[in-house]
Computed example of a mutant assay.
Amino acid sequence: MIEEEGCTLIFLGVDGGATKTVAIIADENGRLYGVGYSGSSSHHFVGYESAKMNVLKAVETALRYAGMSWGDIDGVCYGLSSVGDTPMDTEIVRSFVSEITPIDFILVNDVVNAYYATCLGEPGVVVVAGTGSIAYGRSGIYEVRVGGWGQLIGDEGSAVYIARRALQEATKACDGRGEYTILIDRIPRALGFKSLEEVTFNLMTMKISLIELARLAPVVAEAAVNGDRVAIDILKESGRELALLAIACLRRLRLEHGIVGASGGVFKSGALVWDTFKSIVKASYPHVEFTDPIYGWQPAAGAIVLAAYKHGIRIDRRVLTRLFEAIKVEEAKL
């Protein structure tokens, strides 16, 4: 058990997507009792059984770490990818969650977790930029989703998008059709190949998936730090695209004031993405308030916020910050 249990309501929150699943157990005061971590909970990427077992592993690890059982849990919220994408997707996820959860639960898309972890249920929007990208916003009874159209035709500003743009510019430079960039050498090295030709061959023969390309985003960020102008432009472009997601949400919700949050590893790419994102949003909506980006396991805190909210408890930013700090400590131990 991480902290001693008090006489308060205890909640289980789960956040799961294409790459990882995180479960946390916390109370209404932001005390963290247990954490669990596992692989992908996306049935599209790993299949029904593996998605279910990864969620179960994360939940059981959190319960064991906390020294608790299901009988100790007062509320549960799962924020999992694909929920709400189509009726069939939602039913598939609800089916495997029902098989492993013996009590009532809330089921939402993982972007909703990010919204509650940044906006705390207040009018506002959140932009999530990890492997893919999507935005979500709420104002009263109204909610909107923008983006999330997948790596082939959408997910602008995401890690896969950055990688795709880096490959495009590197191959142009290799041909002499574009400005020279150190990405010509750094991309193959990062993927374990000797040349861009090897990279493109393995992409075309589907030995590398688009999702695997997401690990190139930090390579682009490093090149930008080293002053590579092509990499700098790509990161600024990512920030612009992510800003357009936020602006579209704000416009559809008719929000002139509100909170704008951000979540996901792309926002770790440095000031080029974050500053570009903020400046473009601010130019169209000067009265919005930004919260600092959240990363890693922190979006799972949004599931705790939503579970508490359904029990009539409003978690404030002070409590949320306490929970964030505790989650960061546990994540660092991994």
Rank of each mutant, 00 (worst) to 15 (best):
L80T: 08
L183K: 04
E4H: 02
E99G: 03
D85G: 05
A62P: 02
F96R: 07
H287F: 13
A62W: 07
M206V: 10
F277K: 05
R165A: 06
L255P: 07
A308P: 04
I315V: 11
L242E: 06
M68I: 02
G147T: 05
A117S: 12
S38G: 02
G30T: 02
A51D: 02
G140S: 09
V305H: 01
P188K: 14
V126N: 13
E212R: 14
A190T: 09
G148I: 12
V199K: 04
A283T: 08
V219G: 09
V108F: 05
L235S: 08
S269Y: 09
G192R: 12
R322E: 00
H311R: 12
V319F: 00
K268S: 15
R138S: 05
V219S: 00
A117F: 00
K20I: 12
V146R: 09
Y295Q: 07
R254T: 11
H311W: 01
P293Y: 09
G75N: 10
R64Y: 10
L255A: 09
G154V: 08
P123D: 07
H44I: 15
H287R: 14
D275C: 11
D292I: 11
R164K: 14
E237A: 06
Y116I: 06
G178W: 07
G84V: 04
K207C: 03
W149M: 15
L32S: 02
Y142P: 06
E331G: 08
N109F: 07
A66T: 02
